[in-house]
């Protein structure tokens, strides 16, 4: 729509770009800070230095947190994506009251604040003696990650023509053959995209971990949280920059997936 009645005026356009800069610049500012040659958070003074990155990559604590987060997020993603995708397919094919109720249930974790859920989950883990265990953390990341998968995969399914599935079945394919050979190849971009979401969801999750992780589990978000509250040094900026790069890489991966799909 490029007609004169709708084109924004120049001042409006400039103002909107100012808002875009407000969104982006604060994120980008951590990059030069991570390259500072000083020992405190500041812009580089006499040139850039990589020693805060050297600190980061030789710090046993940071590397351990990175590994823990990677393990937890990978396992959670695998589980959330497989269970969520199956659930989305089931709901789509059933299309009855029960599947409606399941879809409503899936909306809950997106609406209810995590602080509310974590109180009850903490008590449940106390009862199950799972406080401070990987299993406890992974369960929480799976159940809060499944809804994203169901929503993303359901959207893709809504545009898939059911007759392909019916044709496969009438030609003698079993249900699992039809799902594997006909349905999944058609929604694989959405499944991959949901995996990225589920991964980020677990990778960034802080509040649940703060409550239930005990002393042994120090995921990356928890280590950053402690760092911000205790000592603000440029190593933090190096960590933040690395995370920024990872987020950007995943975003571009997701955009590429969606582009290929359409």
């Amino acid at each position: 729509m490029s007609d004169a009645a709708l084109t924004p005026t120049a001042p409006t356009r400039i103002a909107s770009w100012v808002v875009i800069c407000f969104l982006l610049l604060p994120l980008l500012v951590i990059v030069p800070i991570s390259l500072t040659d000083q020992d405190y958070l500041s812009m580089p003074v006499d040139g850039i230095s990589l020693r805060h990155y050297a600190n980061l990559f030789t710090s046993r604590e940071w590397l351990w947190s990175f590994t823990q987060s990677l393990i937890i997020a990978s396992i959670s993603t695998l589980l959330a994506v497989s269970l969520g995708t199956l659930c989305a397919i089931g709901c789509w094919r059933l299309g009855n009251r029960i599947s409606e109720a399941v879809r409503l249930l899936m909306l809950l974790p997106m609406i209810v604040p995590t602080i509310v859920y974590v109180l009850g989950f903490y008590r449940l883990l106390v009862d199950l003696k799972l406080l401070g265990t990987y299993l406890g953390v992974i369960i929480s990341h799976v159940v809060t990650g499944i809804p994203y998968v169901v929503v993303i995969v359901s959207t893709a399914l809504a545009s898939f023509d059911l007759r392909y599935d019916q044709a496969a079945r009438s030609l003698g394919a079993t249900m699992s053959q039809s799902i594997r050979l006909v349905l999944l190849p058609n929604i694989k971009a959405a499944v991959a995209s949901s995996a990225i979401f589920a991964f980020i969801h677990s990778w960034d999750e802080l509040l649940i971990v703060l409550f239930i992780a005990g002393r042994s589990i120090f995921t990356l978000p928890r280590r950053i949280w402690d760092g911000i509250n205790d000592k603000l040094d440029p190593t933090m900026a190096a960590v933040a920059t690395m995370l920024l790069l990872i987020s950007a890489a995943l975003l571009f991966l997701d955009l590429a997936l969606r582009k290929r799909e359409s």
């Binding site: 911000i228 933040a240 987020s247």
Partner: peptide, 10 residues
């Protein structure tokens, strides 16, 4: 896509 922690830190 950027963690709330990273944004708060910024």
């Amino acid at each position: 896509w950027v963690s709330a922690l990273v944004r708060a830190f910024a």
